[in-house]
Design a protein around this nucleic acid. Structure first.
Length: 785
DNA sequence: GGACGGTGCATTTTT
DNA sequence: TGCACCGTCC
């Protein structure tokens, strides 16, 4: 292949620096819309084409499945383009269709197939399919390669059974959701039950540690892993088995991580182990033909609730890098040119994010023109807000022939907010899609079918077994199941071991034994065929022999499409077989558990998009509506008393604003119906008060609130329902922009006020010294002027 | 064993 | 509001 540097010549100088990076560590700080994915894909191409790196030695990790798919597609296209140019001296699209297909298949076979591109979870599950049987936990637990992957509801139901059944705790005080959350957090920080207990020496902490112990035991007994263990186990395995680590270390010579600000401690450990062969960053110096290349933006870190820790990104320079300043460093590149948004939109975004104290200095520079003004609207209630938004959409679509429905996005903080929008969209007959919500693989009928399949692959999976033993109804009720379950617990064997043995079953199942035996034989027959039959054959057999399809059909009502969903699942298996020559039921199930995003191949594409701000990360739209900017909703009431949480909400707002290419509309409602019937009067979001007024047109007077004073802050940050009559004492009535004198640092300007109540802090910028966070109660600072 | 209706709780974000 | 869970009754 002749090397044409076409994909490099189009890059700006920082992008180029990133793309041409070869060995050693590099952190790419990539602002929104700065061509991050482009840099990642071009670098992979550069490694393979110009540095002669074997694609099999490259590992590219993303955060979502969507990002992984997109990366693969872009790499494929890039290679096909290069190939078209060198073979035919023509761009790809100028070649005949057949030629294009041929090129793509060549590219797939020779480059893409060997590349490891995927999410942390899917990559780790692949590693575990090879090596999990070499692992034993400190508590002596082990798994086999047929392990099941528990989703959140499986995990929670296991926890619930432990909390109630094994530990006899009050499940209101230890509600399974929050216990699961605590355990998940512990796992993501790399803590085992003992370490967790060490760090949480309270009654509750000790109890949760105990649940955690039982939970791990339960997972092992089910031969199952939850999402967190999917990553934690490889880390532990690498630490206890140098040979296994060495194998993967030699395999992955070039590691790339996208959305690095979203990594948690365990994920960091994984990358660090793989890159340095367990030697640690400080000791490791053999970077020949080896690299770690991470790309991220601390300002877009919005997943801390899932233990993502953007200080890992902020620490890259000192941990992996040369630690030098921005001007001298060779391990840090900043992409600050934004190709997406108008300068108005960018200025507003930059202004807002400046209010955060914890960030890497970075300013997005516009490459496009000023653009239209940004609009801010205040509606009476959520229905009126929706009317406003949809009204604008209709109007813009009508007046601008270049705008289609798909060019509009409505972004909100919480999923329920889609309702009001959907209502109005439906009324006007505007096509729309809601991203997120109930996922395909979370639907009851799909989970049922998957439970059958999981049981076929992994007989130890008692959670699945219990789910379907009486679905559809086959007369094996609670009493029977309890008897069987007790026996299994007594013998410390999986429930299936009791059920598969007809003698035991006859003894225990009483009146239901005949039906139970029929069930047992049915499941056994699938299990025998797992190795030989194709996944689609097995699915078909399961659907028929269980009577599940027939049952669905008989119960079918107007508005559910359960039957169709199950058919869809069947088509999914068939498609999976076509796309993966070595497809097994086991790999299909892993794929189903990890690919839970809702990206259905929609026939209809020209639709308005409704989604949460979280779901919008990485996307862009010509016209964006940011709705529900109300204190307690956005920022969420859960964040109001926590300065760090407010900063995360602000980053979320920043993400929302930077999705917009040409036009941005922001709105809030004076009154909003919460669950139930209650109408709550709401205060405009603090973020509105932080936007630069000069850039924003208001549609009604008072749509954009003034910059908050300390008094407003205290009232609103503490309490979503502020007491507007609360008197503000003059002495702590600080405001942003105030000039102050500090006895050590000299003159400065207040740039930021955060915290609430007794915890109020000021961020003060002292020229030549930098930003300091100061508590005005304990430090004397004098006001100037 | 299963259907039905009452009560109480939840809404942040997801691999 | 709407869903999950529980108790009651057939």
């Amino acid at each position: 292949m002749v090397i044409t540097a076409d994909f490099i010549s189009q890059l700006n100088s920082s992008q180029r620096q990133a793309v041409e990076h070869f060995c050693g560590p590099l952190l790419v700080v990539a602002g929104a819309g700065s061509g991050k994915t482009r840099a990642l894909t071009a670098r992979i191409a550069n490694l393979i084409l110009n540095r002669r790196v074997d694609p099999g030695n490259i590992l590219a990790v993303t955060f979502t499945n969507k990002a992984a798919r997109e990366m693969k597609e872009r790499i494929e296209r890039l290679f096909a383009e290069q190939e078209a140019l060198s073979r035919h001296s023509k761009p790809l699209h100028m070649l005949p269709e057949q030629e294009q297909v041929q090129l793509r298949s060549y590219v797939y076979k020779n480059f893409l197939k060997e590349l490891w591109v995927g999410t942390f979870h899917s990559l780790c599950s692949r590693i575990l399919r090879f090596d999990i049987e070499k692992y034993q936990s400190p508590a002596g637990q082990s798994w086999t390669r047929n392990f099941s992957i528990f989703d959140e509801s499986d995990a929670q139901s296991l926890i619930k059974s432990i909390v109630i059944g094994q530990m006899n705790l009050d499940d209101r005080k230890f509600n399974p959701r929050s216990v699961r959350f605590a355990i998940s957090n512990a796992k993501n920080q790399g803590l085992d039950p003992n370490e967790y207990e060490e760090a949480n020496q309270t009654f509750k902490g000790r109890a949760i540690a105990e649940v955690y112990r039982y939970y791990q035991k339960g997972l092992a007994a089910n031969n199952a892993l939850d999402f967190d263990d999917l990553i934690r186990l490889p880390v532990q395995l690498f630490r206890q088995n140098a040979q296994v680590l060495d194998y993967w270390h030699r395999r992955f010579r070039h590691i790339l991580v996208d959305e690095y600000q979203d990594t948690n401690r365990t994920q960091y450990d994984l990358i660090q182990l793989l890159a340095t062969n367990g030697q640690g960053n400080q000791k490791f110096d053999d970077w020949q033909n080896r690299s770690v290349f991470v790309v991220g933006d601390a300002d877009q870190s919005i997943y801390s609730f899932r233990a993502a820790d953007f200080t890992i990104l902020m620490g890259f320079q000192t941990e992996f890098g040369d630690g030098k300043t921005d001007d001298d460093t060779e391990t840090l590149v900043k992409l600050e040119e934004n190709y997406r948004s108008t300068s108005n939109i960018l200025d507003v975004a930059n202004h807002l994010i400046e209010n955060n104290t914890e960030r890497i200095d970075k300013v997005l520079r516009a490459t496009r023109g000023t653009g239209d003004a940004i609009f801010c609207h205040r509606a009476d209630n959520e229905a009126m807000e929706a009317e406003y938004v949809i009204g604008q959409i209709r109007n813009l679509e009508l007046k601008n022939p270049e705008l289609n429905w798909k060019d509009f996005a409505v972004l909100y903080r919480t999923n329920i907010q889609s309702r009001a929008m959907e209502e109005v969209l439906t009324r006007f007959g505007i096509p729309y899609k809601v991203v997120g919500g109930l996922r395909f693989y979370e639907r009851r009928e799909i989970k049922d079918v998957l439970a059958y399949l999981r049981l076929a692959v992994n007989p130890a999976d008692s959670v699945s077994l219990k789910r379907i033993i009486n679905v559809p109804r086959r007369g094996i009720g609670k009493t029977t199941l309890d008897n069987l379950d007790k026996a299994a617990a007594e013998l410390e064997v999986p429930l299936w071991d009791i059920i598969k043995d007809e003698t035991s079953l006859k003894t225990l199942a009483g009146r239901a034994s005949k039906r139970a035996i029929a069930f047992s034989r049915m499941v056994s027959s699938w299990q025998e065929r797992v190795e030989t039959a194709s996944p689609s054959e097995l699915v078909q057999e399961v659907l028929e022999s269980t009577g599940y399809l027939a049952d669905l059909k008989s119960k079918e009502t107007e508005d559910d499409n359960r039957f169709e969903n199950v058919e869809e699942l069947y088509r999914g298996v068939v498609q999976f077989e076509e796309e993966n020559e070595d497809a097994t039921l086991s790999t299909f199930l892993a794929n189903a558990a990890l690919n839970s995003d809702n990206e259905k191949n929609n026939d209809e594409n020209n639709q308005v998009t409704l989604m949460t701000l979280h779901a919008s990360k990485g996307l862009e739209f010509p016209v964006v509506f940011l709705v529900g900017l109300e204190q307690g909703l956005f920022p969420s009431f859960r964040s109001l008393e926590d300065a760090a949480a407010i900063e995360e909400e602000r980053r979320l707002c920043y993400v929302g604003i930077t999705r917009a290419q040409d036009r941005l509309f922001i709105s809030h409602a004076r009154e909003r119906r919460t669950y139930g019937n209650m109408r709550e009067v709401s205060t405009p979001s603090i973020f509105l008060s932080e936007l630069p007024r000069d850039y924003i047109m208001t549609t009604v007077p008072s749509a954009l609130p003034d910059r908050w004073t300390t008094t407003t802050r205290k009232a609103n940050l503490k309490n979503p329902q502020p007491n507007l009559n609360a008197p503000g004492t003059h002495e702590d009535d600080w405001s942003v922009g105030a000039s102050v004198i500090h006895k050590a640092f000299g003159a400065g300007k207040v740039t930021h006020i955060f915290g609430a109540g007794n915890k109020i802090c000021l961020a003060i910028h002292f020229p030549g010294i930098g930003k300091k966070i100061i508590d005005p109660r304990t430090t004397t600072i004098d006001r100037l002027g």
